[in-house]
Design a protein around this nucleic acid. Sequence first.
DNA 1: AGATAGAGGACCGTTCGAGTCCAGTAAATA
DNA 2: TATTTACTGGACTCGAACGGTCCTCTATCT
Lengths: 183, 183
Amino acid sequence: MLRMSRITDYGIVLLTKLAADAAAAERAEGSADSPTSTAPETIHNARELAARAGLPLPVVSKILKTLTRGGFLVSQRGARGGYALARRPEEISVASIIDALEGPIALTECGTEPQGACERESRCAVRQPWQRINREVRKTLERVRLSDLAGPGPDFDDSHAAFPLLLQEPLPVSPGSGAPAAD
Amino acid sequence: MLRMSRITDYGIVLLTKLAADAAAAERAEGSADSPTSTAPETIHNARELAARAGLPLPVVSKILKTLTRGGFLVSQRGARGGYALARRPEEISVASIIDALEGPIALTECGTEPQGACERESRCAVRQPWQRINREVRKTLERVRLSDLAGPGPDFDDSHAAFPLLLQEPLPVSPGSGAPAAD
DNA sequence: AGATAGAGGACCGTTCGAGTCCAGTAAATA
DNA sequence: TATTTACTGGACTCGAACGGTCCTCTATCT
């Protein structure tokens, strides 16, 4: 199914919420005297985020810890502590989030392993092409930023084309192949 | 790790070998009197393919059966039986192969499930964007054809740029985000 | 001091995928 | 026709990975 783990899925949802809140707070206070992104308004603790996302607290807690280690969040311990985005949403790509939560993006193992690590490499005819496919999928995921996922606001509308970069038409396929693959 | 199953990986390797052989046979006989792609030269049995790929026979057998059910191969029972490509390599997309071997391509579950199937949908802020990401990754995989993986021949060379469509430069990211995400 | 909340890591149960095996059937050949 | 070859379909097992929980420690605020 070419899927990523549920943890990553949850992680992106959580980051999206934080990004949306940060954007809302920034908008609300204008250019006030709270310059840092760790202003109290943008700090949320795990319990609150778990409740809002409808996910169990331990899971959310684990994910937030990982994201902090990965440099996406800054944490504040103790009473009134919590998490806040460490960077602006536009500076965080979906690819980097996936990297942090479940290792480097690669459809096949030979995409990440150093060359020569696969004992079947000698008779493997597709290593090079796969590496290119991996690269291309990765580029796609790098183009998408957290700010794209957060959307323009709570009244998010699909027709707004949140990230128009993804709406480009697919390039024409190889000439001569009239019928596309059945799918 | 955003990976697909090993079975799918193997399946693509096997199909690639069959595609390369079919192309070689077609080239060798020119436009002889064997019009169908199921000519004896292009039939290979599971045992042979397993040996050439360096994979266990039962696994290869299982994969070939699945691919036959999916319409990618035609099978011939009995002595001197085997498998042959059902379609031309240019007509088979990597996306469709993945579909056949491990279900529809979707990074998250909400990409495939019918709308409303996720009980968290009401508070899920990222469903729509994810569906677009899924769609884009899928397009990427649809652009790549089996013929691209097979390469120009046995003396396959990376510099030949087997599928130039994938070598396009990445589009510029959202303006205003100077620093790319750390990865 | 006490309460709050993150940090870190151990732990467990379930699921899922890889891989094996077997009985059945179709086709070719001797 | 008997035998061999080879695909068909499905059941089955083993192990790893993942989701999820829990516990202890530390830092910070009131």
